[in-house]
Amino acid sequence: MRSSLRSQWFGDRAVLVSLEHPSDRRDVVESLAAALPSHQVRTGMASVLVESVEPDPHLLDHVRIALTRGHDAVTTPVAPRVVEIPVAYTGADLGDVAQVLACAPGEVAAAHRAQEWSVAMMGFAPGFGYLEPIGPMVLDWSTVQRRDSPRSQVPRGSVAVAAGMSAVYPSAMPGGWHLIGTSTAHLFDPARPESPTRLRVGDSVRFVEERS
């Protein structure tokens, strides 16, 4: 099945695998990580990148073989880790988002909490996870686009939505997503090298009401 996935060179030391369905992501990442343990495997929204340190003319063959074999070694699928993130829905753009979704701000908050999210990729900044909605959607998040003009500084802990995704800003940085709330969760701690980020690709994320 996975042998049909398209893989291509991405420079002389990386291969990009295009995903047909986001649900393939976890299988593909696990197959590649198991078959190529000395390589770095990173995910995109619709792709997976396998990277070696130095140029390797055999990498494309190795990736294709790994995809054909699948991850037989990983016998039992492990349920995703669930991470709960507390949110106070007080974001500056909550009203705008409610308008786009044609509902009340309180309904946006309730739908955001009810939604199951999954970490599709990490990037943009350390600890920044791109969360995609999993399962039934009460509201169609894909209708919320990025802001016309990005903010030069989004506060740390801001909970945001844009382009069908959600995210929590791990530190203060520029950002173009719509802010719907704030969280006290610490998503990035460089003082913990064994696990510097709270989120990892494949995690399931639930937002819960912040208790004051």
């Binding site: 991405f10 420079g11 030391r13 990386a14 990009l16 990173r42 995910t43 995109g44 929204m45 619709a46 792709s47 997976v48 990148l49 990277e51 990729m121 990037g123 791109y130």
Partner: peptide
């Protein structure tokens, strides 16, 4: 395009 991993030199 949908966000994807990139490398230096891309």
């Amino acid at each position: 395009i949908p966000s994807q991993p990139v490398v230096p030199g891309a």
